[in-house]
Simulated scan of single mutants.
Amino acid sequence: MFIDVGATSREDAGKMGVKIGTPLTLDTEFKQLGNDRVTGKAFDNRAGCAMLIRGLREMADVKATAHAVFTVQEEVGLKGAKTSAFGLNPDVALATDVSYTGDHPGIEKKQSAIELGKGHSVTVSDAEGCGIIVPESVLRWLKEAAESNNIPYQLEVGAGGTTDASAIHLTRAVEIVDRFF
């Protein structure tokens, strides 16, 4: 990752206290944008946490054991998802994350078929097959849930990196059984 701190050389950056491996965060304030959109720091993970909390509240009458896991270090090796998946060994796991849209500046439509405002993104596979390939029973379950609740969605085949879903999927021998769906 390259972050411009205004230095003219490695030595100049060192004088500022910035070296390779120095933890950094963006100083981005929450701001209103046009068309009912907002910007701010770490929305991808914060939005995922908010969705998970809302989902748990909606599950009050579900007769199943559900674990909510808020993982860490996704961007540096999916570490939290790996340890959580190994420890819990779930029958089914859902991960929330963000997607790049094909109508985003700097992204070509051929890199992502997802469009902003056209519905939630449901991943079919990511990392060009090196990560998760979602079992058909899970895809069917997610699509049926969305359709029965009039929730618009888009299917995504990711060409970039992986998410926590891949780490969970590949951590233990999770058997997906159609009876759950």
Rank of each mutant, 00 (worst) to 15 (best):
Q32V: 14
V69D: 05
E74K: 01
V122N: 01
P23A: 03
D91I: 04
F86M: 09
G17K: 12
V5T: 13
G119R: 06
R57D: 11
P90M: 04
D4L: 05
A42S: 13
G80A: 05
K109W: 06
V69F: 03
A68T: 11
I20N: 08
L33Y: 10
T28Y: 07
V122E: 03
K82T: 11
V38S: 02
G77K: 00
D36P: 00
L56F: 13
R37M: 12
A113G: 09
D27I: 10
F30G: 07
T25I: 14
V62C: 07
G102H: 04
E75D: 09
A13C: 09
T65S: 12
D97C: 05
M59Y: 11
K41C: 05
V98G: 11
D4P: 01
K79D: 00
R37T: 15
V38P: 00
H104D: 10
S99H: 07
L33E: 09
T71H: 01
A7R: 05
A47D: 03
T123E: 06
G21S: 08
V5C: 13
K109L: 14
D44C: 03
G106I: 07
A66Y: 13
K15F: 07
I3E: 06
D4T: 04
D61W: 09
S84N: 01
V76M: 00
S84D: 01
F30A: 11
D97R: 01
R57I: 12
L88D: 02
G106S: 06
I3R: 08
G77Q: 04
T71V: 14
H67P: 00
Y100L: 12
A64P: 02
D27F: 11
Q111P: 02
L116M: 11
H67V: 13
G6E: 06
T96F: 15
D91L: 10
V62I: 15
L116C: 10
T96C: 08
M59D: 03
R10Q: 10
L56R: 07
I114F: 13
G102V: 02
N89Y: 06
G17A: 13
D36I: 00
G17S: 07
V92E: 01
S9T: 12
L33H: 08
V92C: 09
T101Y: 03
V5S: 07
D27G: 05
A85S: 14
E115V: 11
L26W: 12
K19G: 04
A64Y: 03
L24W: 08
R57S: 03
